[in-house]
């Protein structure tokens, strides 16, 4: 009897099981290594990280910091969405606008979000406005570029088809160009959300450095406090894990929204 490829033992494991097997093995090794160290060692260990996580959650600190960071990401993302969409539709539909603005956009795009931090702090101080500026700046480019792409690549034939039905120009934009660009815009949103989350943590870390801690809040700030004041490596690891898990959740959420909004794509 021939061996069916699909019944090989490795493929019997569901994807999620495969996804967690290696991390579990690594954590076990990490814990084993940590147990060889003296009790006073500051090195992070899995059990201590769990303990730290439980304490930070119980005190509400971690939840509050996460909510603060998420709130900033959402606000910064909203600003970027408004700016990126409107400019993107303009640049995508008018060649004239695109050719004039493209050099400016392309020369700002390589400037890392953190590189505008000095200006943001000087203009807005070390609080939320500076952090929002950085998040919005980071999220703006993926949104803009993908909106331009989506709008300018709308199948010409669909527009022609609409014209032959006696549909007005404005109505064609609303009923044809915008829906046709939505997949690109959603992709841009997902990428933008990812970089926004990356940027907020970095911004809070850096803004925290100047403010001396405690004032601006957020997960990044929390990490800074653990780093600069209590030298708590386990706390830092907790923050890192939270950042990673939330980034993953954001990505999955956006994919879910995409699948839901675009049933016509498979």
């Amino acid at each position: 009897m021939s061996m069916n490829v699909n019944t090989r033992p490795a493929d019997v494991m569901p994807p999620w099981a495969k996804a967690i097997t290696l991390p579990i093995i690594l954590v076990v090794i990490w814990q084993a290594w940590a147990m060889t160290l003296p009790e006073t060692s500051p090195a992070p260990a899995p059990l201590k990280v769990v303990q730290s996580f439980v304490e930070l959650t119980a005190s509400g600190e971690l939840v509050w910091a996460t909510l603060q960071s998420l709130g900033r990401v959402l606000a910064g993302f909203a600003i970027a969405l408004a700016a990126g969409l409107s400019l993107g539709v303009l640049m995508g539909s008018s060649r004239m606008v695109r050719e004039n603005l493209d050099p400016i956009v392309e020369s700002f795009r390589p400037i890392a979000p953190m590189a505008i931090l000095p200006i943001a702090i000087l203009w807005f101080g070390t609080g939320t406005p500076a952090a929002l500026t950085i998040v919005a700046y980071a999220a703006f480019f993926p949104l803009l570029i993908n909106t331009i792409h989506g709008v300018s690549r709308v199948d010409r034939q669909l527009i022609r088809a609409a014209q032959t039905m006696g549909i007005s120009r404005l109505r064609i934009v609303i009923a044809v160009v915008v829906p046709a660009a939505i997949p690109s815009v959603l992709l841009g949103s997902r990428l933008a959300m990812g970089v926004a989350w990356t940027a907020i943590i970095a911004a809070e870390l850096a803004v925290g450095a100047k403010s001396g801690g405690g004032t601006s809040g957020g997960v990044g700030q929390m990490m800074f406090v653990f780093y600069a004041y209590s030298i708590d490596l386990n706390g830092i690891v907790v923050c890192m894990i939270v950042v990673g898990v939330i980034a993953l959740l954001i990505d999955r959420l956006f994919r879910l929204v995409e699948r839901h909004l675009l049933p016509w794509r498979n």
Binding site: G166, I167, R171
Partner: peptide, 21 residues
């Protein structure tokens, strides 16, 4: 030149909904 985001029904009715017809 069918609108990929529209169902069969909505494609057929597209001109009636948005156009002069």
């Amino acid at each position: 030149a069918l609108f990929p985001w529209k169902s069969v029904r909505d494609n057929v009715g597209f001109g009636l909904r948005h156009g002069t017809a």
